[in-house]
Design a binder for these strands. Structure first.
Length: 640
RNA sequence: GCCCCCGUAGCUCAAUUGGAUAGAGCAUCGGAUUUCUAAUCCGGUGGUUACAGGUUCAAGUCCUGUCGGGGGUACCA
């Protein structure tokens, strides 16, 4: 079975399929030959990266070995090194030494540089991608806002995390289905209809905006507190909708269309897309059959006849199937209790999962179950991922457990990818309380600030707008994705709009600087009457003299490039885009450190051979940044 | 009440999933620009990893308890 573990990690779905690191493999092989009594795979799992890079590139801790051999760890490490030195050298490994309890390995720097740069240059925009997904389907449910409301900053997390996972899994050759499970049904819809009928009679939807609808909703909700009759009115409207009253239905459809159009504009801005907008209403006619199936599988009993169909006619009578099962002996797990239909989960330390209210209506969990069945049937997913806030943990545990108890083997492939709440000055944000910050307002503000910041740069005014958009919005997305999912975040204008330090603009700026180096190079070549820029970057790998890259900083950049594919896999394995964001920050920092030391590292120089080697290195780092940002949904710009 | 998550520098976060001297950014103090874009770089200050026990060769990480913050907890989604 699958669980979002307590710390948010999830059982590995990759297993042995992860692509291998040739250096780690060589080291494991050598250690096994040198008498470490473990399988090569186990050794590889124990390999670590020393945090102090001068200690080596890979390390093997000898504590457990020492215990087995009844020696001190230092001694064991020394013995291993001695044994290693007696063996023929492994390709790619330059030297080994023991330091305390560790066996530290130094890779052949040139080999690492060559591996990294050639692989990266060869695959270019596909660097970091792989085939481990093998076309298996991953269904990702994310964003999923309610209709007739604009997106708030609270929707940002699900939207960008889901969007990033969509692209990350896609890059690993999973076939992704992005689903926006819109909240387009329920009494809240009745409230909106009631409010519109009351205060906007006769107005056409074309003249109104989602924001207006939201305001009406908030107003209605506020007045409801004083006037309870409004509540029944709202409920009546929803009943009308359920009974397919034509006028009400067309109003509802208008809300839906208006909302989707507005959502699509917002999603386009943050680089997110969906394959399906099948919201709650889509499952209305799938709930009863799903319940019936569940009841059959769990020998449960159905309570209360299904409500009448949309057109008032009786629902298609599919036989009076498994009606009441006599209750004898231990209570069936799925049963009637207090007039409601429940699945008893007390064995698992959870409150019961409610499938039908005592008034016959179905609930959140019922709909999710119907949706899961539908998705399994329709898409045959290998994994269903729900990117939903952490306050829904219990709901997902219950709902997955019910699927499991019903005997659906694929229940173990359902995963709740949870994330911390966005709070506003310590409080949960709520539309009703009016403490919402709208997503689009945040994006706009960020773009404005970017424009201000660009003012003192001499940039082509025509390009300015596009640049400001990419940088401003990128800052917001990156700020969200750089933190681990589990953390709650307090919304703070000052922090979200920060452009210095570990931020999106910092990473984008790295890209800009590298692009600028290439411009400089193109100018130089043109002055010499050499080829054009486009061909230039592509050809670099062919004749680059990589042995000219001898500085430590260059090796360190190559190491980061080399690790990128593993980083992407790790991000998928843990459903954690922040791993990619963190790696990009490392890349950016490594480059800036390198770049600022102009005396030693001027890329474009008179030494053409060295220039080309360095250009290739920079080009690869630029590729990693571009690919990483693209996975996060952030655009790159050539200047800023 | 019970269950779940979180607690690391003044602030926001990392820490290769149990490994070496706990690292970054912001803020603050001090430096670097005739240069391929300073949205940058270098250095200083800043830590009893909430607290108390325990397991282990090794604990920020695992276990128990306490404190603090957040969330959830049968007919909302």
């Amino acid at each position: 079975m699958t669980h979002t573990g307590s710390n948010g990690t999830i059982r590995p779905m990759f297993g042995q399929e992860t692509s291998t690191d040739r250096f780690a493999t060589a080291i494991a092989r050598a250690l096994a030959r040198a008498g470490v009594p473990l399988a090569e795979r186990e050794i590889m799992q124990q390999l670590a990266f020393p945090q102090e890079t001068s200690f080596g590139d890979y390390a093997f801790p000898c504590f457990s070995l020492a215990k087995a051999r009844r020696k001190s760890p230092d001694q064991a490490a020394a013995e291993v090194v001695a044994a290693l030195k007696a063996l023929p050298p492994e390709p790619g490994i330059a030297s080994v030494e023991s330091r305390g309890a560790y066996v530290n390995f130094f890779v052949d720097k040139l080999a690492m540089i060559r591996d990294a740069l050639l692989a990266c240059a060869k695959t270019g925009p596909k660097y970091g991608h792989s085939t481990i997904g093998n076309d298996r389907t991953v269904v990702i449910d994310y964003s999923s806002p309610n209709i007739a409301k604009p997106l708030s900053i609270g929707h940002l997390r699900s939207t960008v995390i889901g969007g990033a996972l969509y692209r990350i899994f896609g890059a690993l050759s999973y076939r992704c289905v992005g689903i926006n499970h819109l909240g387009d049904w329920g009494t809240q819809i009745g409230t909106v209809i009631a409010a519109v009928k009351k205060w906007m009679p006769g107005a056409s939807m074309a003249d109104s905006s989602v924001r207006q609808l939201a305001e009406l909703y908030a107003r209605y909700h506020a007045e409801m507190a004083a006037d309870p009759s409004l509540e029944t009115e709202a409920r009546d409207w929803f009943r009308k909708l359920e009974n397919a009253d034509p006028e009400t239905v067309s109003l509802w459809k208008a809300f839906l269309e208006l909302t989707i159009a507005s959502l699509k504009r917002a999603y386009e801005r943050v680089g997110v897309r969906f394959d399906s907008y099948a919201g709650e209403s889509f499952f209305n006619d799938k709930i009863e059959p799903a319940l019936k199936e569940l009841a059959q599988r769990m020998s449960g009993k159905l309570v209360a006849p299904p409500p009448p169909g949309k057109d008032g006619k009786a629902p298609p009578a599919k036989g009076d199937a498994p009606a009441a099962v006599p209750v004898t002996g231990p209570l069936p797990r799925m049963r009637e209790s207090e007039g409601a239909l429940i699945v008893d989960l007390s064995d698992f330390g959870m409150p019961p999962c409610l499938l039908r209210k005592s008034d016959g209506a179905t609930l959140y969990a019922t709909r999710d179950i119907a949706a899961a069945l539908y998705r399994q049937q329709t898409y045959g997913f290998a994994r269903a991922v729900y990117v939903v806030a952490a306050d829904q943990r219990l709901h997902f545990r219950q709902f997955f457990k019910v699927l499991e108890l019903a005997g659906y083997t694929w229940a173990s492939n359902c995963v709740h990818v949870d994330f911390g709440l966005i709070r506003f000055k310590g409080e949960k944000m709520a539309t009703r309380a009016g403490t919402v910050v709208l997503l689009e307002d945040v994006l706009d503000r960020s773009i404005e600030l970017t424009v201000e910041k660009m003012r003192d740069r001499r940039l082509d005014p025509e390009k300015q707008e596009a640049i400001a958009r990419a940088v401003g919005i990128g800052a917001i997305i990156f700020h969200d994705l750089k933190h681990k999912r589990v953390k709650d975040v307090d919304f703070d204008w000052e922090q979200i709009l920060r452009f210095d330090g570990e931020t999106g603009p910092y990473v984008q700026y790295t890209y800009v600087r590298i692009a600028s180096i290439f411009k400089k190079y193109a100018e130089m070549r043109n002055a010499q009457g050499a080829g054009t820029g486009a061909a230039m970057e592509a050809d670099l790998a062919d004749d680059a003299k990589l042995d000219r890259l001898t500085d430590l900083e260059e090796f360190q950049m190559a190491k980061l490039i080399h690790r990128f594919p593993a980083i992407v896999e790790q991000a998928a394995e843990k459903y954690e885009p922040s791993i990619i964001a963190g790696h990009l920050l490392d890349c950016a920092a490594a480059f800036h450190r390198y770049y600022r030391d102009v005396d030693r590292h001027k890329v474009v120089s008179d030494d053409l051979e060295l220039t080309k080697a360095r250009l290739l290195l920079c080009s690869c780092l630029k590729t990693v940044i571009a690919n990483g940002l693209e996975l996060l949904g952030i655009r790159t710009v050539e200047e800023m």
